[in-house]
Design a protein around this nucleic acid. Sequence first.
DNA 1: TCAAATGTTTGATC
DNA 2: GGATCAAACATTTG
Length: 263
Amino acid sequence: MPELPEVETVVRSLAPRLTGRRILRAHFSSRHVVRENFRRLAARLAGQTVHSVTRHGKFIVAALDSGNLIVHLGMTGRLLFDSPTGPHTRAIFELDEGTLVYDDPRQFGRIEWAPELPARVARLGPDAFLIAENDFLQLLRKRNARIKPLLLNQSFIRGMGNIYSDEALFQAAIHPRAIASRLSKARAQRLYRAMIDVLGAAIDQKGSSISNYVDSEGRRGAFQNMHQVYGREGEPCSRCGAKIRRIVLAGRGTHFCPRCQRM
DNA sequence: TCAAATGTTTGATC
DNA sequence: GGATCAAACATTTG
């Protein structure tokens, strides 16, 4: 489920119901999702009150009395209030009011506690939705890498994922293999605006519900209905009618219009 | 049976 | 260092 707009939507649904709540008990059942000792983590969380819930790139950070509960949803992670547990339930947080369940079929998600944001999280690039235009343009100029994999690189900017990278590049009419440092200023500005625009529109629509994505109240997003290229291989481009193509770049399916998006 | 899936990390190679 | 590519992680779905 997890690109910036989905994580932002989850955080917004989580914050009002989780802030001020006390974690009574926690239970864990996946060594892939929880890398530390289950009981030690549960003991660490028991009795702690949640002071805030925020987003850091694609990470969810719940500030506690002491330290932070940090959750990454991976590909298929979901946090759900008062949901029945199932075969893919990997964690349960019993609260003083209600229960928060973590479900994750593929178990690519992670749950951890840390006194501060771990270096590997704190060190990520600037947030894709908050970065200033000039900062973005300067970062692009320094990189001789292809633009699509670069947008996916969380050390470059944090929050972009496969769907929104393809959609932003389409909106900016830039080929996914274009070299970042060689983009003209006008094209780089177009990409910045497209990125902010696509992310903002997706947040407004509460994310893209492909596969199993829902927010913490179980509500689906609607932005999947507005995708112009992602998941539309072979369909006509909404702008020019050419067939949308799918290639593989950096191991990820990459969708684009070969006529609109030029090097 | 095979390919692909909203992500990240690690290692090999140039 | 960068950059590219492949593989790994684990499971479901078409």
